[in-house]
């Protein structure tokens, strides 16, 4: 029966990969096309300090005539910057969350097929574990694919050498993946006992988790309200994962003030607990 979830996850991942590849290819193409058609016009007054970059084709004909000798091609590699791998991990984690929510109602989807799915020579616990295992593999695959595609994109743009392996990157990956898996687990726990309506929960979770973030800053409504928001945000994956960049180093911070290590522990623990609750609920569901 794991074959069903394999097909479902494969389909979701394929769509994810195609859309992401198309987006990155378009972005890379736009950048390369822009660079190809861009020139730096050296100001005759001060060649060392003033640059005007025009990226539109035929721009040399614009304004004061600048002949070919006054224009030199630009290259991203010449620029002084770095690409922190933590940023790549962070983006990959956010995209993994998208796939996690798509797959997060897989047990719920089986409930409407119970007459077929639950009359097979496999226990529901084993079936649930198989489903969750396949889904988690797909989430990790989405994360890894995004990172690899990002690295490939850097290579295409000729700035692979700008990649910086900062020390906090592993924590970004661990918290980000933890938040994605936690989101997945919460959806499974909320929907595994329901016969229908999984999609509604997915939509609501996105709205709720995003809305709860700014609510955290509201303190003037009193400590009870704020306490309630904090309590809800404890189960909000996005409250554990926010990217911040400082001095070309990308790290993750938690809205709740936890350290990355604590965030890793909480997100993965909640993900595990939610998955166990989902399996327990699913075992008892009547179809």
């Amino acid at each position: 029966m794991g074959y069903v979830e394999y097909l479902r996850a494969r389909h979701a991942f394929t769509v994810f990969a195609i859309v992401l590849t198309a987006c990155i290819a378009f972005t890379d193409f736009s950048i390369l096309y822009g660079i190809h058609n861009a020139h730096v016009e050296h100001s005759s007054a001060n060649r060392d300090t003033t640059y005007t970059i025009s990226v539109a084709p035929g721009s040399k004909a614009h304004g004061k005539a600048a002949d070919d000798e006054d224009s030199v091609p630009i290259s991203l590699a010449d620029k002084d910057f770095t690409v922190p791998i933590g940023m790549l991990f962070g983006v990959a984690a956010y995209l993994a969350m998208v796939l996690a929510t798509i797959l997060g109602t897989s047990l719920n989807k089986e409930n409407s097929r119970g007459g077929f799915a639950f009359t097979k020579p496999i226990s529901r616990e084993r079936l649930a574990l198989t489903f969750i295992g396949i889904d988690l593999a797909a989430i990790v695959a989405a994360f890894s694919f995004t990172v690899l595609l990002g690295l490939a994109s850097l290579e295409v743009l000729g700035i692979f050498g700008k990649l910086a392996l900062e020390p906090g990157a592993a924590a970004v990956a661990a918290v980000g993946l933890g938040a994605a898996v936690m989101w997945y687990g919460l959806l499974q726990a909320a929907t595994s006992m329901r016969v229908a309506g999984g999609g509604l929960f997915v939509g609501l979770s996105w709205v709720l988790f995003f809305i709860m973030l700014p609510f955290y800053a509201i303190t003037f409504l009193g400590p009870i309200f704020h306490g309630l928001i904090v309590a809800i945000d404890f189960f909000n994956p996005l409250a554990y994962f926010a990217l911040v960049s400082h001095d070309d180093i990308v790290t993750t911070i938690s809205l709740l003030g936890f350290s990355p290590g604590t965030c890793i522990a909480i997100t993965w623990s909640l993900a595990t607990a939610a998955c166990i609750a989902a399996i327990y609920g699913w075992k008892r569901v009547e179809v």
Binding site: V4, L7, H11, S112, R113, G114, G115, F116, A117, T119, K120, P121, I122, S123
Partner: peptide, 20 residues
């Protein structure tokens, strides 16, 4: 679960996967 190794059940409503 082992019972279903030799038992086939056909539910009243079709519960096959439409997308498969």
């Amino acid at each position: 679960p082992a019972t279903f190794e030799t038992l086939a059940y056909l539910p009243e409503k079709n519960t096959l996967y439409e997308w498969m």
